[in-house]
């Protein structure tokens, strides 16, 4: 079996002693072309792994920033098919950077799980994070995804104890996403000591790489979490730059793409400063 892009990326970063920077943007925000341009430029700006949000009408786990970006994308006519088309267009310019789709289950369920997995793999998607599918519902998507060799990233949270973690890890693949706060995206500041403790516990139970996200907003934040995790995820803070650079009709200001990419470069520089030694794990 070929090694997945996700596994390759983490293996390569581990050799270099680096933590991965994972960026989140919503597919189609603020419009298809701008979102695709940003997507194509993200790896050069420092994104090691790309999370692409699948906009949903009812994003229950998201704070105001990502709610607003989802609405913009949907108003602009984003659909599941167009998201996969965007990934396919990205793949024409980049064969190595893993792309993870993040969203809610209903659009995939309506697309048809098997058809979605087939089309997403064909487009070049490497993994899925579906926030309203806990392990109790693994039969819905995680198990078919595993069979189709699609990464199925599971989430652990501050409410996860060791017994619960065993349940979560059962069908987890790619990496484990640690939600650093009990809350929605882009709101509270995570408590770094509590997160570190949780990650120590998780490392005792799995060899999967561990990403930390929800509430990481600045290069300094990113660096602090990069000291002890394998990947840091920044979403709302990037999305906020898009929000700040569109006019009332939702049109992108000419500087939008550069501002997003400059911020990603700063995040990457922050992550690079993390105190890690090569092949430490």
């Amino acid at each position: 079996m070929a090694v997945s892009r996700i596994d390759q990326k983490f293996a390569q970063l581990k050799k270099q002693g680096c933590c991965a920077l994972v960026t989140f943007t919503t597919a189609g925000d603020p419009d298809y072309d701008t979102a695709l341009n940003i997507l194509k430029a993200l790896p050069a700006a420092g994104a090691d792994i790309i999370e692409l949000g699948m906009p949903f009408s009812d994003p229950m786990a998201d704070g105001p920033a990502i709610q607003a970006s989802s609405i913009r994308a949907l108003k602009g006519g984003m659909t599941s098919r167009k998201i996969l088309q965007m990934v396919a267009e990205f793949r024409q310019t980049d064969a190595k950077t893993p792309i993870i789709l993040m969203g809610y289950y209903n659009p995939i369920y309506i697309y048809g799980v098997d058809k979605f997995l087939e089309d997403a793999l064909k487009a070049g998607v490497d993994g899925l994070i579906i926030v309203d599918l806990p392990p109790e519902e693994d039969n819905e998507l995680a198990i078919p995804a595993k069979a189709a060799r699609m990464g199925c990233i599971h989430l652990a949270t501050p409410t996860t104890d060791s017994a619960r973690l065993t349940t979560i890890l059962k069908n987890a693949s790619g990496f484990l996403y640690y939600v650093s706060i009990a809350g929605i995206t882009g709101t509270q500041e995570p408590d770094i000591d509590a997160v570190k403790k949780a990650i120590d516990m998780i490392r005792g139970q799995t060899d999967l790489p561990i990403a930390v996200g929800f509430g990481i907003k600045t290069p300094e934040n990113a660096r602090a979490f990069a000291d002890f995790s394998d990947a840091v995820v920044v979403g709302s803070a990037i999305v906020n730059i898009i929000t700040d650079n569109i006019d009332q009709e939702g049109l992108a200001n000419p500087a939008l793409e550069a501002r997003v990419l400059d911020f990603v470069k700063m995040l990457k520089a922050g992550v690079h400063k993390a105190k890690r030694s090569k092949g430490e794990e």
Partner: peptide, 20 residues
């Protein structure tokens, strides 16, 4: 036991809420 009425029902919530 899975909270299903036929195929309907279930527990489609964020992991944070599952323990609760």
């Amino acid at each position: 036991n899975e909270g299903r009425f036929g195929k309907f029902g279930g527990r489609f919530v964020a992991e944070t809420l599952m323990p609760l």
